[in-house]
Design a protein around this nucleic acid. Structure first.
Ligand SMILES: [Zn+2]
Ligand SMILES: [Zn+2]
Ligand SMILES: [Zn+2]
Ligand SMILES: [Zn+2]
Lengths: 158, 158
DNA sequence: GGTGATATGTTATAATATATCATTTCTTGA
DNA sequence: TCAAGAAATGATATATTATAACATATCACC
């Protein structure tokens, strides 16, 4: 068993720094501008491993004294999700930071209903099973949403 | 290849009648009341094989002259989804009728982006792969959302 | 430095969902 | 049968999530 979720006392600053570094790389590769606002929103999303809502981000920005409106947040989120730097959790209407933005992320999301954290995996067996199921019914896949709710390992044992 | 989606010219009245008959059975078995409002909402959902939003249902009810408010629709939807007669498609904020309410529906949903129809499958291989992926990371599953968007067989060939 | 493209600001509003309390309808058992 | 309690619906208000439309600012490039 390898827990996808980070350990309790882990150095989260490293998560943040690494995520930002990766985001910079992706933006550069895509010739996309990692503006102050986008960087700010991205950092806020990475403050935890939980999914955050657009309005939580808005509140956080406003708490810092910025006069930000919803469209600003949604635009940043659109930019980040389009680049695969952030994923939207459909069943939560919330967003969280991708820790492997390089991969082609037809990912699956584990969502802990106790601690609220989200972890992403790109499980080949799941992908294969989904593709096979689609093929069996003559369905041409464009996108998949696989969201699994339950208890993370920490939350089952503590 | 067995298309999950109904044929174009199929007798949809039979779909509706059968769905209502099944719903009556389920409600009776659960000792739940299939009231006029719930039956009405259920029928409206079954007017097509597409997923419909709560407010589309509300509009349809109001168009019939009823003075219905959102809570009434959401209550009916909650009742129906709790019984497994209707499923919510998270990525669409919409609802559609289950055609196999007896099974334990850890189902997967195929959503055609062209014709808008939804079809449900309960694919064991997908379920197994998801359970295995969860086990590998020590995650205890409570619920799963598997929504697959793309083109149904009809829409790829016509 | 001027110009077009991109990003953000601003205002308004659309779309989805729920909280709360009042009223009606149903069930059930004295 | 009908009174009491439970369940469902009505009604009002509001919370939450998201986008449209147009103005302004910033950036990239020549
Ligand atoms: Zn971390
Ligand atoms: Zn947890
Ligand atoms: Zn039909
Ligand atoms: Zn189709």
């Amino acid at each position: 068993m390898t827990d996808l979720f980070p350990k309790k006392g882990h150095d989260h600053d490293r998560c943040i720094d690494s995520a930002i570094a990766q985001a910079e790389k992706v933006c550069e590769a895509e010739n996309a501008r990692f503006t102050d606002m986008r960087r700010k929103v991205f950092s806020l999303i990475w403050q935890s491993h939980k999914a955050v809502t657009a309005y939580e981000l808005l509140d956080a920005l406003q708490a810092e004294g910025q006069r930000v409106q919803p469209p600003t947040v949604y635009r940043a989120l659109e930019f980040l999700t389009d680049l695969g730097l952030v994923h939207r959790i459909e069943s939560l209407n919330a967003y969280f930071g991708c820790d492997q933005p390089d991969c082609d992320h037809l990912g699956q999301y584990f969502i802990c209903t106790r601690c609220g954290r989200v972890a992403e995996t790109v499980d080949e067996d799941v992908s294969i099973a989904v593709r096979k199921a689609a093929k069996q019914v003559g369905f041409k896949i464009e996108a998949t949403t696989v969201e699994i709710k339950g208890l993370c390992h920490d939350c089952t044992t503590h």
